[in-house]
Computed example of a mutant assay.
Amino acid sequence: MPTREGRHLVPTGLLLALTACSPYADAEHGVAAGGRGLAKLNPSPQQGYELVLTLKDAPGPFAVVEGVAQYDARNYAACGRILPATGTAGRITSQEPVELRKVGENEYRGTFYLDRMQDEEYYGRGVCHWTLTGVGAMLRATTGEADTRFLTFIDKERMEAGNPLTRFYPRADYPQIEEIKGYGASGEEDPSSYRTDLRDALFSITTTVQKLAP
Rank of each mutant, 00 (worst) to 15 (best):
residue 205 I to Q: 03
residue 51 L to A: 00
residue 54 T to A: 06
residue 104 G to C: 08
residue 182 G to K: 08
residue 8 H to E: 11
residue 168 F to K: 02
residue 6 G to V: 02
residue 39 A to R: 04
residue 102 K to H: 10
residue 52 V to W: 03
residue 91 R to I: 14
residue 16 L to Y: 11
residue 26 D to W: 05
residue 180 I to T: 09
residue 162 G to P: 08
residue 36 R to G: 06
residue 109 R to E: 11
residue 77 A to F: 09
residue 194 Y to V: 07
residue 131 T to N: 12
residue 177 I to R: 13
residue 203 F to L: 02
residue 139 L to F: 12
residue 12 T to C: 04
residue 24 Y to G: 00
residue 8 H to A: 15
residue 81 R to D: 11
residue 12 T to F: 12
residue 172 A to Y: 08
residue 213 A to T: 15
residue 131 T to M: 07
residue 196 T to D: 13
residue 186 S to D: 13
residue 13 G to W: 09
residue 199 R to L: 01
residue 26 D to N: 08
residue 54 T to Y: 00
residue 157 E to P: 00
residue 174 Y to E: 03
residue 171 R to P: 06
residue 124 G to H: 05
residue 26 D to I: 07
residue 104 G to V: 00
residue 125 R to M: 05
residue 51 L to T: 04
residue 77 A to N: 09
residue 60 G to C: 08
residue 9 L to P: 00
residue 41 L to F: 03
residue 127 V to R: 15
residue 159 M to C: 09
residue 37 G to V: 13
residue 176 Q to I: 02
residue 32 A to C: 09
residue 7 R to W: 14
residue 196 T to V: 14
residue 150 F to E: 03
residue 130 W to S: 04
residue 39 A to C: 14
residue 202 L to H: 01
residue 67 G to P: 06
residue 109 R to T: 07
residue 98 V to T: 05
residue 49 Y to Q: 04
residue 134 G to R: 02
residue 170 P to Y: 06
residue 45 P to R: 06
residue 182 G to R: 06
residue 4 R to F: 12
residue 164 P to L: 00
residue 155 D to M: 05
residue 121 E to P: 13
residue 181 K to E: 11
residue 124 G to K: 09
residue 138 M to C: 09
residue 190 D to W: 09
residue 19 T to C: 13
residue 133 T to C: 06
residue 84 P to F: 00
residue 152 T to D: 01
residue 71 Y to G: 01
residue 203 F to D: 01
residue 108 Y to I: 02
residue 150 F to V: 05
residue 41 L to V: 10
residue 61 P to C: 04
residue 30 G to H: 04
residue 67 G to Q: 01
residue 1 M to Y: 11
residue 31 V to F: 05
residue 166 T to Y: 04
residue 60 G to T: 08
residue 98 V to C: 01
residue 208 T to G: 00
residue 189 E to P: 03
residue 1 M to D: 06
residue 48 G to L: 09
residue 76 Y to D: 01
residue 177 I to E: 06
residue 178 E to T: 12
residue 173 D to A: 13
residue 15 L to E: 13
residue 138 M to K: 10
residue 206 T to E: 01
residue 128 C to P: 06
residue 32 A to Y: 10
residue 205 I to Y: 02
residue 151 L to C: 13
residue 75 N to G: 10
